[in-house]
Write a protein that binds this DNA or RNA. Structure first.
Lengths: 216, 216, 216, 216
DNA sequence: CATGAATGAGTGTTCATTCAT
DNA sequence: AATGAATGAACACTCATTCAT
């Protein structure tokens, strides 16, 4: 008899149960949000842009998200989840060819995530975010990556690096910027080539891989 | 007092001749602009903030700059000049201790510039800038740095790096992010310590410096 | 199931014939409407609130009422009917104890009506209503009350009051506000006590009842 | 030399020092606010309406008030001040002609205040206000009036009233509603006539004034 | 009969820029 | 040379109402 546990319309959809169409609309908004974030950046992203890209009306947006922040928070959560999952997959990186291969594989995966969530990651790195919860999500995700990398770095290069913490930070920064440049500037660098180049440099610079003999 | 050469009020001061007081006011605005840029970031910087920090009125601002962009353009010009000057001072970087020392010196200077103009450099790196002229200024400045670094990198490591272009880009990115983190997050890292750490890593990772033997 | 008499969906139910369930739904909406009106007031009452309280969907509302106004008009009609019925029951109010008793009885009944329809009455008194038809309903209902009171007042106090019209108005206003305060502020005053107090004051102030001798 | 203690533009004017023109504009906004409040009521009052009446632009409004609430708070403060001042002027009200005269004088003053601040007073009485500070202002002002009236009522009629608290409340309510009706409905009742009628009724109903002998 | 979804006009607020003094 | 004041376009968010299922 009771007409089902419907929530108040107007309640952002995170707390409602969505039907097929509702879920499709939500996905449209998330996609559009990601697109707008990538194009305009965090501060300049307008709800207007999002709904235009999603081909929906202004009002519909607020049927699914409490406000602009809420949409970005949802994207940040997705991204943080992916990054933490990625962090857990990093295997040992010795100074030999196997180590470089593992590094290459891992970096390629990172570049893949960056292709979708780059704008979110950038927003974290560049301190564009004001919202507490989102900052926390970012710190969390980065902490996971840092921990994974630092563990391998410490194992591989116990003493030739002046400061493992700082080195890890530098590595992460370099990886992120590299991903940014190769994904936004049209450098014509594929994920695979990018990952390989980056892996080589990092392997030598941080993990103690030997530099091939000069000349020949 | 001066009979003629004054322009109509509203003409940005760049094209007027300034007396002592005028120059002082202009300097106040530039300083305030830099401060606000550093605190708020490019997008969030408000003319309001600038004039409040400069302790001047709203109207005065537009006596000296045609618009917000114009102020930031002026700051960008200053910054580009410093960076190009810095680029021209980079000496040869061999794989020995002299090379590392030169690298360290140069990086320390860069960190110094970053301390004042970090916000501008960041705005360039992070594509926050929309204004064509500013983008051009940034590309120019970065091109100078890139050229200087790439020249030394090519001389030092003719063939052990897969892609010198990309490697240079990665280096620059790393240096900038490193500067950013050490200058904004309170990591308690002095310019000197930072430059030393960074120099060591770069020297080994890019310039072919040998890694000290493992263990001992 | 019923072959013909159903109207196009969207036609407010006032003009449709309702089955058992339909009548139940309508009652739910009216109840919810009254509740929301009481809590939020006329202007702030949202269709959203009404359907949430009624545990029905947004669409359903418009199956029964043409619009928000329509619901409130229905409530206003109910209330006006009750008030007019009440008006017709007021008996003579002499300056003796019988008069006071009659006044007390009548006021108690009024307080009862106010308990359910207070929000509607208040909306009338406070000119919150914009809708012509509702205003007319209110004027009508108040006219009935006024006429009844004025008749008794004129009979009881032919000449000691400066202006019978104005006095009646003042009485009504006082009664309404009294009902409002005692029903919303938690003054812990029961309908009976309230009616008694009010009756005493009105009886003396307007109907010429003697004030008991000072002292005792 | 120091260019004066100017505050940030954008800071609501309550905290800035205003020049002649600024003060004029502020007054315009306050007047317009009062007018709109009276016409539209608290909830329906739009900033748009206020600036249209004041013949100012939208942006100007926010130069003088932090937001809509802030304007109404300013009006409420003015009103509360007037009411508290009025409360302090109420003299003894005996059951003789002098008492009635004092009551009449005081009521006439109240009606005067109501002519300007009626909309604010009504908003308080009718619980239209949501803002905490404004509610507090209203309670304060009403408490002052209540205390003044109650003191005189207690002195004049120590024991013939069933409940002095409730009686005071009823009196106040009646006075306010009376003021409301005579000031909004076009009843053609001047402040003086209104005050006289009201004074007579209250004097007899509450302060124990004798009712003139029936008939003659 | 009922529902979830979508819409768009309306409202409060911010901020770069112009103007009169 | 400097200032206080005014402007209006842009943007976030709400809510009565309509529609497809």
């Amino acid at each position: 008899m009771a007409p089902a546990p419907t929530r108040a319309p107007g309640t952002p959809a995170a707390e409602r149960e969505l039907r097929t169409q509702g879920r499709r609309t939500m996905a449209k908004l998330l996609d559009a949000g990601m697109k707008v974030l990538a194009e305009r950046g965090y501060q300049a992203a307008r709800v207007d842009d999002v709904v235009r890209v999603a081909k929906l009306s202004h009002g519909t947006f607020y049927l699914y998200f409490a406000n602009k922040e809420d949409l970005f928070r949802a994207l940040a959560t997705e991204c943080a989840d992916e990054m933490k999952a990625l962090a857990s997959t990093l295997g040992p990186i010795g100074s030999g060819p196997d180590g470089e291969a593992e590094l290459r594989r891992w970096l390629a995966e990172f570049l893949g995530i960056y292709r979708r969530y780059g704008a979110v990651i950038r927003a974290w790195m560049e301190d564009q975010v004001v919202d507490r919860k989102q900052i926390a999500l970012g710190l969390d995700a980065f902490a996971a990556l840092t921990a994974a990398l630092e563990a391998q770095l410490a194992a591989a290069a116990p003493d030739h690096l002046p400061d493992v913490d700082l080195a890890t930070l530098a590595m992460l920064a370099m990886v992120e910027r590299f991903a940014y440049f190769t994904s936004t500037r049209d450098l014509g660098v594929s994920d695979d080539v990018g990952a390989a180049t980056l892996a080589t440099m990092l392997h030598r610079g941080f993990f103690g891989a030997p530099v091939p003999a000069r000349g020949r």
